[in-house]
Simulated scan of single mutants.
Amino acid sequence: MNDQNESRLERGKRALAAIDGAAGQNVIDALEDIAPDFSRYIFEFSFGDIYSRPGLGLREREIATVAALTAMGNAAPQLKVHIEAALNVGVSKDEIVETMMQMAVYAGFPAALNGLFAAKAVFAERDLP
């Protein structure tokens, strides 16, 4: 996924589009009037540098991200974006639920519950049974 001729910004925009589609762009757009530099940092660092590294595919990166955001227990808006992203890159509904249940062992039941309720909302929006 790493093309040496692309800038970090271009690479990040391409990666974000592949992962999140409109949901990720909506976050970036929402920052434009308050912190446009921060949106550039998200593109360049998060997606241009980290998500574009070899070693893990987008599917595995999104499972890790869903796990981390679930474990935090207080990042529901970001978790919902990454649940959408996980579904976009081929993670199944069951895999997302299992990832969140696993987090109960390490982050506690409240964090796992918050994650599961975020997932339930995303699944309902997507009409997933």
Rank of each mutant, 00 (worst) to 15 (best):
M100N: 08
P110H: 11
P129F: 01
Q102T: 12
A30P: 06
R61P: 04
R126N: 04
F117M: 08
A18N: 07
Q102C: 12
Y106C: 08
L69T: 15
R53H: 05
E10N: 12
D37N: 08
A75M: 09
A104P: 09
S52K: 03
N88A: 01
K13D: 10
G12K: 02
E84V: 10
P129Q: 00
D3W: 02
F43D: 15
F109Q: 09
G21Q: 03
D94H: 04
L116G: 03
Y41R: 05
E60R: 02
A86Y: 06
F47Q: 11
D94Q: 07
K80T: 05
V105T: 12
G55C: 07
A18L: 05
E125C: 04
L58D: 11
D127A: 06
V97N: 00
E98P: 09
F47A: 10
P36K: 11
A107L: 12
G12T: 04
Q4H: 07
G90D: 08
A121R: 02
L58R: 07
E10C: 06
A15W: 02
R40I: 13
T70S: 02
V81K: 04
G12R: 05
A111Q: 14
N88P: 01
E95G: 03
E95S: 06
A64C: 13
A67H: 12
G55V: 01
M100D: 09
E84A: 11
A112V: 02
F117P: 02
L16N: 14
K120G: 05
F47N: 11
Y51S: 04
E95N: 01
A112M: 09
F45M: 09
L9Y: 15
I63C: 11
K13P: 11
V97G: 07
A15P: 08
S39W: 08
R61I: 03
A67Q: 13
I83R: 00
K13I: 11
V122W: 06
M103S: 14
N114G: 05
Q78L: 06
L56T: 09
Q25P: 10
K80A: 01
Y41D: 10
E62R: 07
N2P: 00
L58H: 04
D37W: 02
V27H: 06
A17R: 14
A112G: 07
A67M: 13
A86M: 05
V122P: 00
Q4N: 10
S92Y: 09
L79R: 01
A35I: 14
Y41F: 06
N88S: 00
Q25W: 13
M101C: 15
K13A: 08
A15K: 09
L58Y: 05
A104W: 08
A112H: 02
A107C: 12
G57H: 00
A23C: 03
E125M: 00
I63R: 12
K13N: 12
E95Q: 07
L31T: 12
R59S: 14
N26C: 10
Q78E: 10
A15E: 08
L9S: 15
S52A: 04
R8M: 07
V81S: 08
P54I: 06
N2Y: 01
L16T: 14
V97M: 05
G57P: 00
P36D: 14
T70H: 01
E32D: 15
P110W: 08
L56Y: 09
V89E: 03
R126G: 07
I50C: 08
E6F: 13
E84N: 15
S39F: 06
P54C: 00
L16S: 14
A121F: 00
A18Y: 03
I34E: 14
Q78P: 01
